[in-house]
Design a protein around this nucleic acid. Structure first.
Lengths: 249, 249
DNA sequence: ATCTGTTATCTGTGATCACACATAGCAGAC
DNA sequence: GTCTGCTATGTGTGATCACAGATAACAGAT
C-alpha cells in the first residue's frame, strides 16, 4: 500500500519526468501498530502517569471489553508488562499492579541511582547543545510550576519526568534508556502518592535545588557534579515517600 | 486437592488429636507451571547457554510443533522475551535472536559494570558465610577446569556463570538480580562466541586472576576491591570479544 | 449465629480457525 | 539475460471456543 500511494503521488506531482532521487525521503515511514502494541502503550501510560494504584486488580476480559478488542491483544500486552515487573500475576493467576513493600522501594531507589547516575554522567559528556537546551527548558517549566501560587502537582510531576528523560536520552544509550524507563514503570504507581501529597510537596521539596545543580553541571560539562545532584534528587524524593509511611511492610 | 491430601494424611497419621501446628509445613508447595512458563524457561536456557546464534530466525509454528504444543504458549513466551530485548521482531514481523553491533555490545558492557558492580558491593556486605563458601566453590570448579590439560570451554563458561550468579544472589536484591539475568540473556548468544574460540581462551584469559581477587575481597569483606576486580573481569572479557572482530558494524 | 460443604459464575490458559501481509518462486516482457 | 509483475505458500495477528481452576454466594448442619 505504501508503494502504491507513493506511485500515485509521483504520477500527479511530477508527471512523466521520472522518479526524482529523493522520493523515498518523501513517503512517510510506515509504522506497524499492532493491537497488542496499542494496549501495551495504553497500559504503560496508565502506570507511568500513576493512574493505577498498587494492588489494583483487573481482568483480561474486562480490559478487552473496555478497549473494544478481544482478550488476545490484552494477554500479550499484559505478559510483556509482567516480564518487566510492571504488572504481576498472583499464584491464583489474578493480574494486578504490584504492591511496593518498603524493601522493594529501597532496592529500586538503589538501582535507579546506579543506572540513572550512569546515564547522567554519559549524557553530560555526550549531549549536544540542542539537547542541553531542551533539558534546561524542562527545568524552567518545572521551576515555573513550583513558583506558582497554586502549583499543579501533576504538571510538576510531568515536567520532572520530561526533564529526567530528556537528560537520559542525551546519553544516546538506547538499552540503558529502556531499562530506566522500565524502572519508572515500576515506581510510577507510587510516585503518584508523592505529588498527591498536595502542593506543599512541590514547594517544600528539594527537587528544584537538585535540578538546578544538575543543569548547571550539565552546562559546565561536569559529569561527577551532575551525578551527585541527580543521586541527591532521587534519594531525597525517596526519603519523602518513605517518611509518609504509605508503603506496606 | 492440596488441602484434601493434607487432611487424609492427618487422619491416618495423627488420628483424632487435632491438627498439629506444623502441618502446613509438611505439604509440598504447589508450583504453578503453565505451558507458556515452560516454553519461556526453555528459550531462556537456550539463549543463556549460547545455543542460539545472533541473527538466527525462527517461527512460532515451528517452535510449537517442535515442543509439541500449540502456537499460543510460544507466542506468550516470545512476547515476554521481546519485552526483555532477548528476542526481537523485525518490521516484517519475523522473530529472531537480535544482532549485536559493537556499539550495543559496548553499551551492555557499561551497564553490566554498573549493575553487577552494585550487586557485588552489596553482596560483599550482605553475604552469609554459607553463600561465601558457595561462591568460593564455583571459583574452585572454574580454576580446576582451567588447569586441566584439555579444558572444556562450555564447562568453564558454566562455572563462570554459576560463580557470578551465586555472588549476585548473595546481595539479596531480587529485582537487581533479575535485571542482571536479563542482561546475561542478551549477551548470552555472543558469549558463546567467546568460549568457542577454543581452549586457549580459557587458559590465556585473565578471568581466573579476577575471580581469585573477587573471592579474596569477598572473604575480606572489602566491597571496593571486589567491585574493581569484577569490573576488570567484565571489561577484559569484553575486550577479548571485541578484538576478535566477529561483531557486525 | 457460625461454620462447613456445595454449587454457580467467572477468569486465565490453551487450541483452533480466519485473515492480512510478507517472502519466494515462476512466468512473461523488454 | 535481466527485470517486472503475479501467484502460492507460509507467517504473525486476532477472534472464538473449550476447559481447568478459583472466587463467591448459598444452603445445611452444629
Amino acid at each position: 500500500m505504501e508503494h502504491k500511494t507513493a506511485s500515485a503521488d509521483e504520477d500527479v506531482e511530477a508527471g512523466t519526468e521520472g522518479p526524482p532521487p529523493g522520493l523515498d525521503t518523501r513517503v512517510v515511514r510506515i509504522v506497524r501498530q499492532t493491537l497488542a502494541d496499542q494496549v501495551y502503550g495504553d497500559l504503560k501510560e496508565l502506570l507511568l502517569a500513576g493512574r493505577a494504584a498498587p494492588g489494583e486488580r483487573f481482568t483480561l476480559r474486562g480490559l478487552a471489553s473496555a478497549i473494544g478488542t478481544s482478550a488476545m491483544p490484552v494477554r500479550e500486552a499484559v505478559s510483556r508488562l509482567v516480564a518487566e515487573n510492571a504488572l504481576e500475576v498472583l499464584p491464583n493467576r489474578a493480574v494486578r499492579v504490584p504492591l511496593m513493600p518498603r524493601a522493594r522501594f529501597k532496592e529500586l531507589r538503589l538501582i535507579r541511582c546506579s543506572l540513572e547516575g550512569l546515564a547522567t554522567e554519559t549524557a553530560v559528556r555526550a549531549a549536544s547543545d540542542a539537547e542541553i537546551a531542551e533539558v534546561e527548558g524542562f527545568e524552567r517549566l518545572f521551576a515555573a510550576e513550583r513558583d506558582k501560587p497554586e502549583p499543579d502537582g501533576a504538571a510538576a510531576m510531568c515536567h520532572n519526568k520530561d526533564l529526567h528523560f530528556a537528560l537520559y536520552r542525551a546519553a544516546h544509550l538506547p538499552t540503558l534508556f529502556q531499562m530506566i524507563e522500565g524502572l519508572w514503570l515500576q515506581i510510577g504507581p507510587v510516585l503518584n502518592l508523592d505529588f498527591r501529597a498536595g502542593p506543599d510537596r512541590v514547594r517544600q521539596g528539594e527537587a528544584h535545588i537538585r535540578h538546578a545543580a544538575m543543569v548547571a553541571a550539565l552546562k559546565a560539562r561536569d559529569p561527577e557534579a551532575a551525578r551527585t545532584a541527580l543521586v541527591a534528587d532521587i534519594w531525597s524524593a525517596g526519603d519523602f515517600i518513605l517518611s509518609r509511611n504509605v508503603l506496606p511492610d
